[in-house]
Simulated scan of single mutants.
Amino acid sequence: MDVLANLPSHLTRHRMLGPKATAAFLGVTTSQLSRMRSEGIIPQPIHFSPRRYGWKVGILLDWVDSETIRHRHGADQFTVDMVASANETRSWFSGHPSDIQILLNDSDVAVAVWQDWREPNGVGLMPIKGEDLLNAENRALKYTIAAFPCGSAEHAEALMGRWAK
């Protein structure tokens, strides 16, 4: 019985793949994977020792999602960055109110992110905090952004109604 095949999805995202399995997962050769790694095209692996390393399945899935959004849907860099940030938040986020409050307090801007196939690039974005900093004139300013993964626009609106000041 393959216990790994029956893991819950939240645990499957933490499963590690070595270079051969990662190359197969991405549909590239190990040589191509090595080049992609050295050129910084793919996320950096986790090192177990100087010669052993691998990638978490969840990180690879999130990277593939962001690349799909960028190339197939023509999303701008901000949208791609928000999707990547929301995916990163999802990897540790419990949804507990204290996590939300900490993330909001530690950021100047907060954006809700969800899949929305009605949008041209398949991503819905809603500012929750610091909308004025997202204006084109302020893009040159330095500020911290937190991206919250949401299930829908309604979820984002509820988040904004509960936490926005």
Score class of each variant (00 low, 15 high):
Gly122Gln: 06
Asn135Val: 15
Gly122Pro: 10
Phe93Trp: 11
Pro120Gly: 09
Trp92Gln: 13
Phe93Leu: 10
Lys56Arg: 15
Thr68Pro: 02
Ile41Asn: 00
Arg139Phe: 06
Met82Cys: 15
Asp99Arg: 12
Leu134Met: 09
Gly58Glu: 01
His47Cys: 06
Gly122Tyr: 05
Gly74Met: 03
Leu104His: 05
Pro120Cys: 02
Ser98Tyr: 11
Thr79Tyr: 04
Asp99Pro: 04
Asn121Gln: 07
Ile69Lys: 00
Ser66Ala: 09
Ala75Lys: 01
Trp92Phe: 15
Val109Pro: 12
His71Leu: 05
Pro127Ser: 15
Trp55Met: 07
Phe78Asp: 13
Tyr143Asp: 06
Gln101Ile: 11
Thr89Phe: 02
Leu103Gln: 08
Ser107Gln: 03
Arg139Leu: 10
Asp62Thr: 01
Gly40Asp: 03
Pro43Met: 02
Ala110Tyr: 13
Pro50His: 12
Trp92His: 11
Leu134Phe: 04
Ser91Asn: 06
Asp116Ser: 15
Asn105Ile: 00
Leu125Lys: 14
Glu131Ile: 14
Phe48Lys: 14
Ile69Tyr: 00
Asp65Ala: 12
Glu67Gly: 00
Asp99Met: 10
Val83Asn: 10
Asp108Met: 07
Gly74Lys: 06
Tyr143Glu: 11
Glu131Phe: 05
Glu137Met: 15
Ala75Gly: 08
Val57Ser: 07
Thr89Gln: 06
Phe78Leu: 09
Arg72Glu: 03
Ala86Leu: 02
Ile102Tyr: 09
Ser85Thr: 09
Gln101Val: 14
Trp55Gln: 04
Asn87Ser: 08
Ala136Gly: 08
Gly130Glu: 12
Leu61Ile: 06
Thr79Lys: 02
Asn105Pro: 06
Ile46Ala: 03
Lys129Gln: 10
Lys56His: 08
Leu134His: 14
Arg90Ser: 01
Arg72Asn: 01
Leu125Pro: 00
Asp62Cys: 02
Asp108Lys: 07
Ser34Phe: 01
Ile100Ser: 12
Ser49Phe: 13
Ile59Gln: 03
Arg35His: 10
His73Glu: 10
Gly95Asp: 03
Arg52Lys: 03
Leu61Val: 07
Ala112Thr: 04
Gln77Pro: 05
Gly40Phe: 05
Lys142Glu: 15
Arg35Trp: 01
Ile100Thr: 08
Gly54Trp: 11
Asp81Ile: 11
Pro120Phe: 11
Arg72Cys: 03
Arg72Thr: 05
Arg51Trp: 14
Asp116Tyr: 02
Ile145Glu: 08
Thr89Cys: 08
Arg72His: 01
Ile145Lys: 06
Glu39Trp: 03
Lys142Ile: 11
Ser107Thr: 09
Ala110Trp: 01
Leu141Trp: 10
Asp108Leu: 01
Glu119Pro: 04
Phe78His: 09
His96Cys: 15
Arg72Phe: 02
